[in-house]
Nucleic acid binder design. Sequence first.
DNA 1: CGGCATCCTTATAGATACTG
DNA 2: CAGTATCTATAAGGATGCCG
Lengths: 119, 119
Amino acid sequence: MDDTVTTRRDRRKAGRTGCAVEATLSVIGGVWKPVLLFHLLEGKLRFNALCRLTPSATPRMITLQLRELEADGIINRIVYPEVPPKVEYELTELGRSLAPVLLSMRDWGQRLQMLESAA
Amino acid sequence: MDDTVTTRRDRRKAGRTGCAVEATLSVIGGVWKPVLLFHLLEGKLRFNALCRLTPSATPRMITLQLRELEADGIINRIVYPEVPPKVEYELTELGRSLAPVLLSMRDWGQRLQMLESAA
DNA sequence: CGGCATCCTTATAGATACTG
DNA sequence: CAGTATCTATAAGGATGCCG
């Protein structure tokens, strides 16, 4: 086996294709990740809280995205060993450093929503 | 045919699910859109130039993403009626207003790359 | 409560070949 | 040069049910 296929994707997965923006997207590139992280900016949240705040994503999707974020060192998963189970998610320091990105996204989205409601 | 399936997605497509971040993502949510837009921050670019700057995406993908961005009023497509054909893309004013988002993405990606190379 | 495993459907992305 | 069309493979995503 050699470089038969998936040349482009592999190069992307490998790391940088030349652009720092792609590095960022490889971490928060999922559709729901920025939304979840944005909600976590305000503090720790339980799984169910995240589900309620992101009703357009299924619990399954939210789980998967959270796992990836955890693997990338963006969030911590805190399990409280009690019954009924309780799990909270919080941003790591690296995750909190995403605040400028997330806040600028929110700001732009707000402007867009204003433009749309005006039209 | 009625509201059988895709309930969640439909609600998302419909507009806002409650969060401005989602509004932003509905416009630049694609994996390649932020990269393309970031490159266009520096000025007009031809199709081939965008392909060269984004080697991990296929020309087909780039075409599709550019079309969506055009439909959302983020970029202009300028066709020069000459042979050989020449098409340039440039940000609209709305597109340029994304600069803070794109630049914060680049900044964070640069920090990430530094952390990775240090590790 | 907070998941995870499974199954299944749909959407997406890639390769390739062709056109104005 | 700047795409478009088609076809196929893969993966994303949803529904459901079970478990700690």
